[in-house]
Design a protein around this nucleic acid. Structure first.
Lengths: 158, 158
DNA sequence: AGCCTAATTGAAAATGAATTTCAATTTCCT
DNA sequence: AGGAAATTGAAATTCATTTTCAATTAGGCT
């Protein structure tokens, strides 16, 4: 999990934009900006990965000892509602969150041995999905696609 | 849930073939054929739907009052291992099972309002998925794809 | 700056699906 | 039929998720 480390100024700018978006969302809904929400959003946006509430909580606990699991859990739900995160459930049944940008529609390759999750995006597949939905007169809102198997590292040992 | 009702002789034949396949699997593994397993497999294969263990248990309870939930649960796991069922988790986090034929690779359209699940199959998408896997030197075993949105009935009321 | 109300926090409890335990029962091999 | 091994089902357990509730905090309003 990539929590900290060097970051380009572009990445930092994006994160700050997202944090502003969260603040607007809170103001709009009459909710409050708190230190906890700020810390959790920052750490979450920095990970860029598919974290569970538990994982993010443990990571945050290393730096802050006064932020509880429940708050991390609730803040992730909040980020989801505000459009900054998506909630996903893979085959292990755990709820994972990942930062979401408006125009990003990626899918996942999931290694059944080491559990690594690799993202990919394929516009042709997207278009075919839209066509399928049309065919069934279905109004598509979102989709998910996962390919399960063995990653490059694990397939040799399997 | 389509549990009973008129069935073509072709459907009946297919179900019987699958039940034979289960028996071979049990024999092969040194496991036992029991009345419960037979009833559960029959009812499950007849549904042809995406049932949870709970749903199938309730359905079976209408006819049989001596088959427990645990046995239904365990038999579904067994059917999964024997290749007669697949286990799937959709966005509601529940584990669902559906009868599986060797050459059937379908995906799902899931209505976010009424919860209806429609199957579809698209060979072009399949091929593109394989191509993506190759690109990442990933050995693909299975995939799942779900399109979430509103079905024909629900989209008008939404 | 202080007040006040509503929102937030976090520990603990509750929920609920999935899984395991265990004693009684059943299968099926010999 | 006899016996070892597998199966069953009720109940207990596990574990992630969600809710509860009393104490705390944010931020609009004087």
């Amino acid at each position: 999990m990539k929590i900290s480390g060097a970051r380009t100024s572009k990445e930092i700018k994006l994160i700050n934009e997202k944090k502003e978006k969260l603040k607007s969302f809170l103001r709009e809904k009459g909710l409050k900006s708190t230190r906890q929400r700020d810390v959790i959003a920052s750490e979450f946006l920095k990970t860029g990965e598919h974290v569970t509430a538990e994982e993010l909580y443990r990571e945050i606990s290393k730096k802050y000892n006064d932020i509880g699991f429940t708050t991390v859990y609730r803040t992730l739900k909040l980020l989801n509602k505000s459009g900054l995160a998506t909630e996903r459930v893979f085959a292990d049944h755990l709820t994972r969150y990942e930062p979401l940008s408006a125009d990003d529609h990626h899918d996942h390759l999931i290694c059944m041995k080491c559990g690594s999750i690799t993202e990919f995006e394929d516009l042709k597949i997207e278009r075919l999905q839209e066509r399928v939905a049309e065919e069934f007169s279905f109004l598509s809102v979102s989709h998910k696609m996962e390919i399960y198997g063995y990653c490059n590292k694990c397939k040799d040992n399997a």
